[in-house]
Amino acid sequence: NLAEVVERVLTFLPAKALLRVACVCRLWRECVRRVLRTHR
Rank of each mutant, 00 (worst) to 15 (best):
A22K: 14
E30N: 14
R20V: 12
A15Y: 03
E7F: 07
R37C: 06
E7W: 12
C23I: 09
R37S: 09
V9Y: 03
V5H: 02
R20W: 09
L19Y: 07
L10W: 11
H39G: 14
R33A: 08
R37Q: 06
R33F: 04
K16C: 06
L10D: 00
E4F: 11
R29G: 05
V9K: 01
T11P: 01
L10P: 00
V6A: 06
A17D: 05
R37E: 05
V32K: 09
R20K: 13
L10F: 10
E4T: 12
A22P: 00
T38V: 13
R29D: 01
L13P: 02
W28N: 00
A15H: 11
A22D: 04
A17N: 07
V5F: 06
K16H: 03
A3L: 09
R33Y: 03
C23F: 10
V9R: 00
W28E: 00
R20C: 08
W28R: 01
V21C: 10
V32E: 00
F12I: 04
C23K: 15
H39F: 15
C23Q: 15
A3K: 15
C31T: 12
C23T: 11
E7Y: 06
W28C: 08
V32C: 07
V35G: 02
E4Y: 13
C31Q: 07
V6R: 02
H39L: 15
L2Q: 03
C31K: 13
P14T: 13
A3F: 14
R34L: 07
V24T: 03
E4A: 08
L18R: 15
V6T: 03
A3Y: 13
R40H: 02
V35R: 05
T11V: 14
V6W: 14
L36K: 13
K16Q: 12
E7N: 07
R40F: 04
W28H: 01
E7V: 10
T38W: 14
V32W: 11
R33V: 03
V21D: 03
V9A: 08
A15P: 07
W28V: 15
A22M: 08
R8G: 02
R8Q: 03
L2D: 00
R34Y: 04
L2A: 00
R34N: 06
R20T: 09
L10S: 04
C31A: 12
L19I: 02
N1C: 01
C31M: 15
L2V: 00
V32S: 02
R37V: 05
L27C: 12
R29H: 03
V5K: 05
R8Y: 03
T38L: 14
R34F: 09
K16I: 00
L13K: 03
V24G: 04
R26P: 01
V6C: 12
A15D: 02
L18C: 09
V35E: 00
L19M: 14
A17Q: 07
E4G: 13
V9M: 13
L36Y: 06
C25K: 14
V9Q: 00
C31E: 03
L27S: 11
T11R: 15
V9E: 00
P14E: 15
L13D: 01
R26Q: 03
R20P: 10
L18E: 02
R26C: 00
P14K: 15
A15R: 14
V9F: 07
R26K: 11
C23V: 08
F12Y: 04
L27H: 13
R8F: 02
L27T: 12
R37W: 07
A17L: 13
L27E: 09
V9W: 10
A22Y: 03
P14S: 15
V5Q: 05
R29C: 03
W28K: 01
R29S: 04
A3Q: 11
A3R: 15
R40M: 06
V24K: 09
L13Q: 02
C31P: 01
C23G: 13
V6N: 00
W28D: 00
V35Y: 05
T11N: 09
R33P: 01
R37A: 08
A15W: 06
L27P: 02
R40T: 09
V24D: 03
K16V: 02
F12H: 14
V24Y: 02
R26N: 03
N1S: 08
R40I: 10
V21L: 12
L19P: 03
V5T: 05
L10E: 00
V9I: 06
E4Q: 13
V32L: 08
L18H: 02
V35N: 01
L18S: 09
R8T: 03
L27R: 15
L36V: 09
W28L: 15
R33H: 05
L2M: 10
E7R: 12
R8N: 02
A17E: 06
V21H: 03
L2F: 11
A15I: 04
L27V: 09
C25I: 13
W28T: 10
E7H: 10
C25L: 12
E7D: 03
A15L: 06
K16Y: 03
L36R: 10
R34E: 00
R40G: 10
C25E: 12
E4C: 06
L2R: 04
L18N: 02
V24P: 01
L19K: 15
A3C: 13
E7P: 02
L27K: 14
R29I: 04
L27M: 14
A22N: 08
L27I: 12
R26E: 04
L13M: 07
E7L: 09
L27N: 10
V6H: 00
E7M: 14
V5Y: 01
L13E: 01
R34P: 02
R26A: 00
C31R: 09
R20G: 15
E4V: 10
V6Q: 01
R34W: 09
L18P: 02
P14V: 05
R29F: 02
R37P: 06
W28Y: 04
V6M: 13
